[in-house]
Design a protein around this nucleic acid. Structure first.
Lengths: 133, 133
DNA sequence: CCGCATCCTTGATGATACTG
DNA sequence: CAGTATCATCAAGGATGCGG
């Protein structure tokens, strides 16, 4: 069989697309930012260096485990730095890197759009739900 | 006991923060956009009206189920409209609403940032993994 | 062609308890 | 203070089959 079946073509297209998805910069960024606490942490750090407990107080609904996990992930990707001060008790401080800081305007733009359109979204949602009651 | 215990204060703060999270426009937008296929669909529709099967071909790695689910969700929130042409077989077309279209520049900004910084992210990741080997 | 229903797997999140 | 470890939960996503 020198030619591919329709099935094979679909399969190849799917594999190629998955490959693309895995490397697409935009999609990778979306993945990073869509972590439940990532954007909140970046916004908190936009106000300056913070200690672990400070972040915990700013985000009371996040468990310590999730804070650690998200902070580690953001550190790994170069959005922030973690510095430990050997004292008793230890002090750990988190600070945005220049790259992390450069993302703040994007978050601000998202906030502006959200503030401007959230009303319309809620209206659309209510209308949709009413029409499909 | 006229005053709250430390435990009660923490609990209250947590409840208040969860309330805030549920109403924060920015966070709601992040929720919508972080649906695995939402941004890809919006980008595809930015090129004009598309039929269901067209979108499926553009995103081969998405199952039909997820396409339907994501499209419904975006329709409900007013990002796009769905119109059915009663024929045999039926034709279903999806088009961005003005609000949906207004989100495209934001996605473009995210893409620009991602393209500019994805290299740095990968470097940071490699360095982090090497340091913690 | 389009989409719903069902079953199932898996990763993300949370609660709790313990350590340097 | 700043985690780590473990267990439990739950919703998102994927596979498959049927129906208008």
């Amino acid at each position: 069989m020198a030619t591919m079946t329709a099935e094979q073509r679909r399969s190849a297209a799917k594999a190629a697309h998955e490959e693309y998805m895995a490397t697409c910069p935009t999609h990778q960024l979306l993945d990073i930012m869509s972590a439940k606490w990532a954007s909140l942490i970046l916004i908190e750090l936009a106000g300056g260096t913070r200690r672990f407990a400070d972040i915990g107080r700013a985000l009371p609904s996040a468990s310590a485990k999730m804070l650690t996990q998200t902070l580690r992930s953001l550190e790994r990707d170069g959005f922030l730095t973690r510095s430990v001060t050997p004292a008793v008790p230890v002090q750990v401080e988190y600070t945005l890197t220049p790259m992390g800081a450069s993302l703040i305007p994007l978050l601000a733009a998202a906030k502006d759009w959200a503030d401007a359109n959230i009303g319309a979204i809620h209206s659309a949602r209510a209308r949709y739900d009413a029409d499909n009651a």
